[in-house]
């Protein structure tokens, strides 16, 4: 008979080996799959995106900014630029890096795939918002534009990605940038967030942890060198002005303060409330499901009972008793309690 101690040891080694293989598998597979050629393709596409971004935002683009953006050496960046030139994707101009029409079309194609994939992740999967960008960075070089078109069609041909960036159309049309940076708003201004910059990741992470999302209405209470203090969805939030520069907003013409928000999750059993709306952070299927259940502005909802576990809570919504989890009822905003129901 096999000695049990030895057997366990061999087993342990196998498990460790498999785990190691699993962890490094992505790298290995990528390395095997990505020949030198593919790597160049990635760099070329990433550089195109960067140059396009510079042009879109009217910023200068240099060899150094390319090297920085792609995290490669200047030598390598020079090679990438040479390659771009040889492919006639950028103009042959030593002073300025500028896209050719061909190059712009290519860049928009890559951007289109990236943004479609982000939208898909946000609307149809349970992936965390912090993972969207990195995942899309990989997919934009992997899936073909036909596949991306099919994916877009299956999720209703979205116009904007979850960060608020417009998705270029199949023919490469893209609308003008609109709005202003959050740190340029004055005290008392009311505006809607239309874009959250997802790079650099650390800043984006901070914005996300503050609960910011595209479609959110905000009112600025205070702005100085230290912080931008604003109120949104009934909560007061503060971010440094540098971070606020990564948030684009569109000011409301009439300075109306957003209605006073109260979350459905705050409703006590027996209380009633009138739905104002669903937070824009609730997207895709989740959002459509809630609306199908009758949660639209104007619907009167009353809290009926709490489950043994404390969550979910059942609500009476348009004649049916429907259980909602806290994570859902937190995203539904209601107006003042209309009246207390006896018992």
């Amino acid at each position: 008979m096999v000695d049990p101690v030895n057997a366990l040891m061999v087993f342990g080694f196998i498990v460790i080996g498999l785990t190691a293989l699993f962890i490094t598998q992505k790298k290995i597979v990528n390395n095997i799959r990505r020949t030198q050629n593919d790597k160049m393709k990635m760099h070329v596409e990433d550089a195109l995106k960067h140059i396009y971004d510079c042009e879109y935002k009217n910023m200068g683009c240099t060899l150094h900014s390319i090297a920085g953006n792609l995290s490669i050496s200047s030598d390598k960046a020079a090679k990438v630029i040479a390659k771009l030139e040889s492919l006639k994707l950028i103009m042959n101009d030593p002073d300025k890096i500028k896209l050719t029409d061909e190059g712009r079309k290519y860049a928009l194609q890559v951007i289109r795939i990236h943004r479609i994939w982000e939208t898909y992740l946000a609307d149809e999967t349970s992936k965390d918002e912090l993972e969207w960008h990195d995942d899309a960075e990989l997919m934009e070089h992997t899936i073909s534009s036909e596949e991306a078109d099919r994916l877009a069609a299956s999720i209703g041909n979205p116009l904007r990605d979850p960060h608020g960036d417009p998705i270029p159309s199949e023919t490469g049309d893209i609308p003008e940038l609109e709005g202003q940076q959050l740190n340029t708003l004055d005290e008392g201004d009311t505006a809607r967030i239309v874009h959250l910059e997802d790079e650099p990741a650390a800043v984006y992470k901070n914005l996300v942890s503050q609960g910011l999302h595209v479609g959110m209405d905000i009112t600025v209470n205070k702005r100085d060198k230290e912080e931008v203090l604003f109120e949104s969805e009934g909560v007061s939030r503060s971010i440094p002005p540098v971070y606020a520069a990564n948030v684009t907003v569109v000011k409301f013409e009439a300075s109306i303060k957003p209605e006073s928000y109260k979350k459905l999750s705050n409703l006590k059993i027996g209380e009633k409330g009138k739905v104002i709306g669903i937070s824009k952070a609730c997207r895709g299927q989740q959002r459509r499901r809630l609306m199908d259940l009758g949660i639209v502005p104007g619907t009167v909802v009353s809290a009926e009972m709490v489950s043994s576990g404390g969550d979910p809570v059942a609500y009476l919504i348009r004649g049916a008793t429907i259980a909602l989890r806290k994570s859902q009822s937190e995203k539904i905003y209601i107006e003042e309690r209309l009246s207390e129901v006896s018992n």
Binding site: D292, L293, G294, R318, G319, A320
Partner: peptide, 9 residues
Amino acid sequence: ATRLERNLN
């Protein structure tokens, strides 16, 4: 018939 409103949707 017991849930007319939501069915009318």
